[in-house]
């Protein structure tokens, strides 16, 4: 299998700010790579370099076997890009937006029209086709923007934070749409701040921070690096904390952490719900009724705590990109 996207020691510097430093990426055809990181980590800068929008300061990259810096025009013919800010024209209707993109791909009037209708159907926008995009909800705008990226069935697709700012329902809808793309065999590079999203959609994840790749692997590999899931028990009374900690010590895999203020005990577990059930039984036996009891999956913050010793922090970046 050939590699659809290759980046070698890719770097971008703005003045004295290193937005991206020596980034190496390889995305085999038909797979999904997730770039996971907080705001300002260099995700968007990376996407903009790979999609011909900005020129790298150092290193090189290839998309579909074509050198991006040497032949940007050829690259533009085979990629679809959906940005962080849905780039739809507010004053055009959904149909007009897609037809315009088709015309700009030089599809010709009839094919641009036909493709616009197909995409509206596929993204459940047919009912809103004749309404200006201004009246669309956030989720609809994102879908329309993504549809715009797919007008010519591009073999390589870049999605920059496709679900940031969407409500949970729209996010689920978007995930469905993206999964379908993947099933259809497209190569995808998507950026996200959510581990859950990367877990669900990506074959391989690259965690980046301050422009550098700090970890790489499948979601399972990354999670096991982070010690996996945690069981958290909150109790109503301070006196019960010590007993709860004893219980968790017996079901967990390491020493429980006790948070006095939150009256909560947490411990890493490796048996999932089996550990939860055992903990419930033991707590009940000790006559403790927890005020909260849950399994916590690792989040981006945990990834960062483990990898960098610091929580993921938001940064303001130069040039208005993240």
């Amino acid at each position: 299998m050939a590699d659809a996207i290759i980046a070698e020691r890719l770097g971008k510097t703005y003045g004295s700010v290193n937005a991206v430093v020596d980034l190496d990426l390889v995305v085999p055809e038909g797979t999904v790579l997730g770039l996971l990181g907080p705001n300002g980590a260099g995700k968007t800068t990376t996407v903009r370099m790979l999609t011909t929008l900005i020129t790298p300061t150092s290193g090189r990259c290839e998309v579909g076997g074509i050198d991006v810096c040497a032949h940007p025009d050829q690259v533009r013919r085979i990629i679809g890009v959906s940005g962080q800010y849905a780039a739809v024209d507010d004053y055009l209707t959904g149909y007009e937006n897609l037809e315009m993109v088709g015309r700009l791909y030089h599809l010709g009037k009839r094919r641009a029209r036909k493709r616009a209708f197909e995409l509206l159907e596929q993204f459940e926008l047919t009912d809103a086709a004749d309404r200006p995009a201004k009246t669309y909800s956030g989720g609809m705008r994102r879908r329309l923007d993504l549809a715009g990226a797919l007008v010519v069935h591009p073999p390589v697709i870049f999605l920059d934070e496709p679900t940031t700012g969407l409500d949970p329902r729209s996010r689920l809808g978007m995930w469905g749409v993206i999964s379908d793309l993947v099933k259809a065999g497209s190569t995808l590079l998507l950026t996200t701040q959510y581990l859950e999203e990367a877990d669900r959609l990506c074959d391989e994840i690259v965690v980046i921070d301050h422009g550098r790749a700090i970890a790489q692997g499948t979601a399972t590999e990354l999670k096991s690096q982070m010690g996996g899931e945690k069981l958290a028990v909150a109790v109503g009374d301070h006196e019960e904390l010590a007993t709860a900690a004893d219980v968790l010590r017996s079901v967990g895999v390491d020493e429980p952490e006790v948070d006095d203020q939150a009256r909560e005990v947490t411990v890493h577990i490796d048996r999932g719900t089996a550990a939860l059930v055992e903990a419930v039984r033991k707590l009940d036996g000790a006559d403790i009724t927890p005020t909260n009891l849950e399994i916590r999956k690792p989040t981006l913050d945990d990834v960062f705590l483990t990898l960098t010793g610091q929580p993921a922090q938001e940064e303001t970046e130069t040039g208005g990109t993240a």
């Binding site: 533009r76 800010y85 700009l104 715009g148």
Partner: peptide, 11 residues
């Protein structure tokens, strides 16, 4: 609004 980006990613 990022529309120029969209345009610039088209051939």
């Amino acid at each position: 609004k990022g529309i120029v980006d969209r345009f610039r990613s088209l051939p």
